[in-house]
Design a protein around this nucleic acid. Structure first.
Lengths: 141, 141
DNA sequence: TCCGTAGTACGGCGATCGTCAAACTACACT
DNA sequence: AGTGTAGTTTGACGATCGCCGTACTACGGA
C-alpha cells in the first residue's frame, strides 16, 4: 500500500505546521538540509513520486523520532510542505517555491544525486562501495 | 594588491596537500561545504575571478585559524584546489572536476547565491536584513 | 642570519547535529 | 469506550561544527 493521494482521503485536521514563506527560503538552509543523506533520500523520493506521500512510506533506516526530526528540518527550511490528514502527515516537495527562488537548483541537485547513485551502484540503501579518499592529482579549471 | 597569478610567480614548494580524486568527490560533502556562508563566499569569489587566488585576498571576517579551517574543508571535499607557492597558498575552484561529476550543479548554486544576494541587498558581508521566519502559506506544487 | 609574512597545528569553547528510547498525543475504527 | 496506528515531544548521548588564541613552521628577502 502506498498511502498516495487516495480518493476519499481525509481532510486536513486542526493541527497546523509552520512553514517559511517562499521569499524566506534561504539557500544555505536548503543546502544544509540536502547535505544529509537521509534527507536527500526523502527529497529524491518526493521528486520522483509527485503528490503527497505520508511519512511512513519512506521507511528510513532510523528511529521514528529521528524521522520526525528530518522531516521537520526539511519543512522548516522550506524544502517540503507538510500537512496533517487524519492520522497521517502528508509530505510534498515545494518545487514551485524552490524553482521560483533558485531556478534550476533543485533539478541539478537531483540530477547530481542520481548520477552519484548510478556511479556507486544503488547507494539508496547506504551500504555501497565508497572509494576511500585517495591521493592527489586534481584537474581544476 | 591582488596576489593574482603574477608573472614570475614562485613555483610550488615541497609541502604537499591532500586532494580527493575527481571520482571521489561526494555530493553530500560538496553540499555541506557550500552550506556555510563563509565558504560560499570563498567559492563565489573564486568563481568570478578565475585563476589562483591566495588565501589572504579573501579577508574573511574570522580569525586566521578559522580561515585555514574553511579552506581545508573546501579542499578536502574536492571543491577547491590548493597549492603552496612560496609563502603563499594559492586556491582555485575545481570547476572542471565538479562539472564532470555533477553537471550544472556548481552553476546553479552560484546563480542561486547571486539571486539571493540580490534580493537581500549585498548579503556578501553578512550584515543584511534577514526577514524573520514568519507564518505559513506555502505554494508547493 | 635574522626578520617579516603567510599559513598551520593544537587545544579548547559553546552550539548544533544525528541519533536513540520512552512517554505521549491525535486520529480512525470498532 | 477501547484499541491500534501515526507521528510528536522530551531529554539524553557522542560527534561534529564554527570559532578563537597561542604557539609554531615555511618561505622570501634584507
Amino acid at each position: 500500500m502506498q498511502t498516495q493521494t487516495t480518493p476519499t482521503a481525509p481532510q486536513a485536521t486542526g493541527r497546523s505546521l509552520e512553514h517559511p514563506r517562499r521569499e524566506a527560503i534561504r539557500l544555505e538552509d536548503v543546502l544544509h538540509a540536502l547535505a544529509d543523506p537521509m534527507r536527500m533520500r526523502v527529497v529524491r523520493t518526493l521528486a520522483e513520486r509527485p503528490g503527497e506521500l505520508s511519512c511512513s512510506v519512506f521507511d528510513l533506516p532510523v528511529s521514528k523520532s529521528t524521522t520526525t526530526h528530518h522531516f521537520r528540518v526539511l519543512r522548516e527550511c522550506g524544502v517540503i510542505h507538510q500537512i496533517y490528514r487524519g492520522t497521517a502527515k502528508m509530505n510534498a516537495l515545494r518545487r514551485a517555491d524552490l524553482d521560483a527562488m533558485f531556478p534550476g537548483l533543485l533539478d541539478s541537485v537531483l540530477a547530481a544525486a542520481a548520477l552519484q547513485e548510478g556511479r556507486l551502484g544503488s547507494g539508496r540503501d547506504g551500504k555501497s562501495a565508497r572509494p576511500e579518499p585517495g591521493s592527489a592529482r586534481p584537474a581544476g579549471g
